[in-house]
Design a protein around this nucleic acid. Structure first.
Lengths: 129, 129
DNA sequence: TTATTACTGCAACGCTATTGCAATATTGAA
DNA sequence: TTCAATATTGCAATAGCGTTGCAGTAATAA
């Protein structure tokens, strides 16, 4: 059966970090913003929990790190984050783009259950420099 | 100035592995197929070298691992691997798709230098099971 | 054949993420 | 409010992927 979930102080702290942040965050970002308040392992577990609940979605960046961002159209068990993600090589941040592209035509016989776009480049701020 | 490159036995071994394989391979795959013949660090360095030469391209998978596959339209220093990559959740293999989709429209002010698609699902073989 | 230096293997290290376990805190029910 | 059940936390240890330093080896050009 489903495991019950509890509303704890640490979860609220992590959620607050997400709410005060526009872009996506990686584990280290969150630990840093909560300096000393939560153990790093707990952060990993909370992120996993939020992901399972459909509250945040996961983004695998080219640098090997995993980023997380609040979901808008996801529900528990089903992540509909088919939008594109952008990595700015200037400020080294990951953000979610509203625009969705068009999936490549899959060859005969293939079935897709999830897809993701990842674009690297410069955001308006960093491009200007 | 450019560093000279040498044609060694180990490089040939790694290249042979790629040539006998249809899909993309991760570091561990290659080490396993060359069981005991090459040190794991050497494999990392050869992969890096091939990448720099434009012989193979890099794919960051959702599982956090990096995959490599032979290039077709790349040249040293410039990787044109704008095609989509497919991860089969059945046989757990990564492959390159010929088809190219359409990139999402970037918001005003953004500039893209690289992009990648990643699609998860089932390949024809695994779908049938 | 010989000198140059790219390459290899080994050991050690760094970083991201996971697991086990005892102590703690949340929750629903008495 | 009190209490028991159990989800959650923190700490220590561990696993996995990738990198760096260095001494010995081997490919290449002269």
């Amino acid at each position: 059966m489903e495991k019950q979930r509890r509303n704890t102080k640490t979860k609220k702290l992590v959620m607050d970090v997400f709410r005060h942040e526009a872009g996506a965050l990686c584990h280290a970002d969150i630990v840093q913003r909560l300096e000393g308040k939560i153990d790093r392992v707990t952060v990993y577990r909370i992120l996993q929990g939020f992901f399972d609940e459909g509250i945040i979605h996961r983004i695998s960046a080219e640098n090997g790190k995993t980023y997380y961002a609040l979901c808008h159209e996801c529900s528990a068990g089903h992540h509909a984050d088919n939008h594109a993600h952008f990595y700015c090589m200037g400020c080294k941040t990951v953000s979610c783009l509203e625009a969705t592209g068009q999936l490549p035509q899959l060859p005969q016989g293939y079935s897709a259950s999830e897809s993701s776009w990842f674009i690297s480049g410069y955001c308006p701020n960093c491009r200007a420099v």
